[in-house]
Design a protein around this nucleic acid. Structure first.
Length: 560
RNA sequence: GCGCCUGUAGCUCAGUGGAUAGAGCGAUUGACUCCGGAUCAAUAGGCCGCAGGUUCGACUCCUGUCAGGCGCACCA
């Protein structure tokens, strides 16, 4: 157990023991007592930890909060590292620690190296996280970039917290969108070969289709001219989908995202799973027919409205294949839990998908959908809704090329998924050199620089067993160690609350504390004992910072 | 009209029912003859959209209201 958890447990156990003793003396039923909660006071001069338990249970004990607090204090079994206990304000009990407990943390970091911060709260539960899943009909946009950054870091966080995690990209290579894509490609193909053709009104009007067809003609010539329109669309479409998927893989790799599985919607039709799931729902009475279409009774499971599974023309809807897809995740592949990251424009879909899971006998709690508010792009002082079909967009690739992988990933992970995001491309480029990611990376490079300088005069980071850690006794040093100590806690919170953005805040805070330390304390040239202790401290800081940056998928450079 | 999300410093955003509401950027003022100034220290800047309610205590929970975003297809 990490020392930070151990010390918190010691305090809680102490409070509990104290309360039980008071309960026994006053005849209060111990089962009615609340579990004591600890919090970190905003103003640290109050102490390291505080509890409000005297306030929350003052009624139960029939005593005034401050009076009860005094009793808890006087019955508290003093344990190691607790320096003082004080009652304050309306009845807070503040615990001050003897901060030398923090030396243990340096030992933990040195023993565990890159495993520091690893937890077992996941208990090897199988989690699948599906994100981006952009239509393969064109390049990825800013919304995909945001979803990618959030999904990829969340996956890393969950893995660190002890879950078995798979990253998956769902390729929508079936259905209406793809038909439109084929028709649009055909029009561009014919235009390039001098024929009169128009991209359908609701087709894809982006220039990228023209480029694709130029490339196709270069490689494959004009052979499609002699085909029927249906055949031609199919050939062009399949060719273009392959191209686009390859491109997406490359773009995502350049963005630092590697998927375990690329799953094709079309495979669900080929395997018969779409029909099978429709039949299963029918058989169990969860469907009805209306106007020639097959409807799923989503309202029976609490959704706001029913939805169509099979259109009157006999073709299943996207909803039907998506149910089959999720059934595949849970039943065929046996994931305990599935996390989907969707754009907020799919919000209406969530209730119906959960309803469908319930109808299939899969607990809807096993499916978590993180709705990500859309990214709005500011261009020329105005907001424009980006559209693949209209072709007016900044792509993920543009962004990564202009601002850099690290800065983009960091930027998108500084905000929670449900905040709206107004993105000013010009500002992003202009301010890229002031991006917070560089602040954190600079701290890492600075430490490396000190270690290099030390090494050049024959001083290496000593074995921690040979170091008198009590040379570390300044406030800035304790503050820094405290931040290092809280890393496992931060990983746990980020994993449990599905909030990967905590990691960017952590990296920033750690960097700030290091920079403060740097300004106040020298390492090289200090008396030997102090120098050795500080070398261990900055080396530990370097390890944890690199650890956090690696979870974020951004680099930890030795030089900048 | 109904549903979901969001209103916090000039800007972009944090803030597990607790004590004097925070960070980055921007502004102002300072700081190495010295381990990287991509840094540090300090100052200014807030009716936490508004109004009620619950509570010992509300930025946080509830209700209403105003403003913005997104949905409400036999599209995906």
């Amino acid at each position: 157990m990490y020392s930070i958890f151990k010390i918190q447990k010691d305090i809680k156990d102490g409070i509990k023991a104290s309360l039980e003793k008071i309960a026994a003396e006053t005849g209060v039923n111990p089962y009615d007592m609340p579990m004591p909660e600890l919090e970190v006071p905003k103003d640290r001069s109050f102490g390291d930890y505080a509890t409000n338990v005297a306030m929350t249970s003052s009624k139960l004990f029939g005593k005034k909060p401050r009076e009860l607090a005094e009793l808890i204090k006087s019955n508290f079994p003093l344990t190691k590292y607790i320096a003082s206990i004080e009652i304050a304000g309306p009845g807070f009990i503040n615990f001050k620690l003897d901060r030398t407990w923090l030396y243990n943390v340096l030992k933990e970091i040195n023993a565990m190296e890159e495993d520091y911060g690893n937890l077992d709260i996941g208990k090897d539960q199988k989690i699948q996280i599906e994100f981006v899943s952009a239509n393969p009909t064109g390049p990825m946009h800013l919304g995909n970039a945001r979803g990618g950054a959030i999904g990829d870091v969340l996956a890393s966080v969950l893995k660190k917290a002890g879950y078995y995690v798979e990253r998956e990209f769902y390729i929508n290579d079936a259905g209406n969108q793809v038909e439109k894509f084929g028709a649009s490609l055909e029009a561009r193909y014919l235009q390039l070969l001098g024929q009169d053709a128009a991209v359908p009104q609701d087709g894809y009007h982006g220039e990228d289709l023209v480029e694709l067809m130029k490339e196709y003609i270069e490689d494959n010539g004009e052979g499609c001219l002699s085909m029927s329109s249906d055949e031609r669309q199919l050939v062009l479409r399949e060719w273009a989908l392959e191209k686009n998927i390859e491109r997406m893989k490359k773009d995502l790799e350049a963005y630092g995202i590697h998927y375990d599985v690329w799953f094709r919607e079309s495979s669900l039709y080929e395997s018969g799973e779409v029909n099978a799931v429709i039949e299963e729902l029918k058989k169990n009475g969860h469907t009805y027919e209306k106007d020639g279409a097959v409807w799923f009774k989503a309202t029976e499971f609490g959704a706001d409205k029913d939805d169509v599974l099979v259109r009157a023309n006999g073709i299943p809807t996207y909803f039907a294949s998506d149910i089959a897809y999720h059934r595949n995740k849970f039943i065929k592949r046996g994931f305990d839990r599935v996390i989907d990251i969707w754009g907020a424009d799919h919000a209406g879909h969530v209730g119906r998908m959960k309803a469908a899971m319930e109808a299939l006998g899969i607990s809807p709690d096993r499916l978590t959908v993180i709705l990500m508010q859309l990214v709005r792009l500011k261009m020329g002082g105005e907001f424009a809704r980006m559209s693949k079909r209209k072709g007016n967009m900044v792509t993920l690739r543009d962004l990564v090329d202009a601002v850099g992988k690290d800065a983009v990933r960091f930027l998108f992970n500084m905000r929670s998924a449900d905040s709206q995001f107004e993105f000013d491309m010009d500002l992003a480029i202009k301010e890229s050199s002031e991006n917070p990611v560089f602040y954190a990376q600079y701290a890492h490079a600075r430490i490396c620089s000190i270690l290099r300088n030390a090494s050049s005069i024959g001083i290496n980071v000593p074995d921690i067993a040979d170091v008198e850690l009590n040379h570390l006794n300044k406030n800035v040093e304790f503050d820094l160690m405290e931040k290092l100590a809280s890393y496992p806690e931060e990983i746990g919170q980020a994993a449990l609350r599905l909030e990967p953005y905590r990691l960017t805040h952590y990296a920033m805070d750690l960097a700030t504390l290091f920079h403060s330390f740097y300004t106040e304390c020298r390492v090289i040239g200090e008396e030997e004992g102090v120098m050795k202790a500080r070398l261990v401290l900055i080396d530990s800081t370097k390890k944890v910072l690199a650890n956090a940056l690696s979870v974020l998928g951004v680099g930890a450079p030795e030089k900048m």
